[in-house]
């Protein structure tokens, strides 16, 4: 991140050294050490810092086209390599979520099904569709479909699907998946329904009927 500052620096002595040092662990200490206080360096760095500040203000005022606010990915709806239609499978055909996402009850992660799961049906169902044929081809070759991940949590958050299902189902009376993932059975292309922000998680954890833990290490460890 900080390398951008140094790349734009005009002092060649500084640049060559710092670039090498960014490969090593001792980067910070060496940056201090090797700047023997050139006024030019300081001035240039100062200008760069100001310019960056300007940029930040600019980006705040303008906003981004696709991204609502800072940080959260709510509404993220990437295109998938095969346009799998949840509204058809889960909505119209009423296939249960757990038929495909079958590990959700025993794993922290809800699995994206292997191609073999798709082929359970599609070896006979709609075999004339070009998309199914594409899938069939990949299946026969031993390839996998590189699906685009929709729901992304930061690396320092540990969410456990299996721990949530039963409690949510008991208290809401509906299919637990929908509480967080929204009306999946209506989605032609899946999008991120909730913010998946920490405040959003904690809101439920605070509800007395769930008696859910509120420890930091419940999610962060």
């Amino acid at each position: 991140m900080s390398s951008s500052i140094f790349d734009s620096d005009s002092n060649s002595r500084f640049r060559s050294k710092s670039q090498a040092q960014f490969q090593s662990h001792s980067q910070v200490s060496n940056v201090f050490r090797n700047n023997s206080g050139s006024v030019v360096v300081k001035a240039v760095l100062g200008v760069v810092a100001l310019a960056l500040g300007g940029l930040i203000l600019f980006s705040f005022s303008k906003g981004c086209n696709h991204q609502p606010g800072i940080g959260y990915n709510q509404g993220y709806q990437p295109e998938q390599p095969i346009p799998f239609d949840h509204s058809l499978h889960a909505g119209q055909n009423q296939i249960q979520c757990k038929y495909c996402h079958n590990q959700v009850e025993r794993s922290t992660h809800s699995n994206i099904p292997a191609l073999s799961t798709c082929m359970n049906c599609h070896l006979v169902v709609k075999t004339d569709s070009p998309l199914i044929q594409k899938m069939r081809e990949a299946y026969d070759k031993g390839d996998s479909i590189p699906w685009v991940k929709v729901h992304m949590l930061p690396d320092h958050v540990k969410f456990n699907h299996s721990a949530h299902l039963e409690k949510i189902e008991k208290h809401t009376g509906e299919i637990a998946c929908k509480t967080c993932h929204g009306p999946i059975e209506t989605m032609k292309v899946v999008y991120q329904h909730s913010t998946l922000s920490m405040g959003w998680c904690v809101n439920c954890h605070r509800e007395p009927q769930y008696s859910a833990p509120l420890n930091c290490s419940t999610c962060h460890h």
């Binding site: 073999s116 799961t117 996998s144 992304m152």
Partner: peptide, 10 residues
């Protein structure tokens, strides 16, 4: 963009 690459045969 992150990818999820499931198994071919589970």
């Amino acid at each position: 963009v992150q990818k999820i690459i499931p198994y071919n045969k589970q």
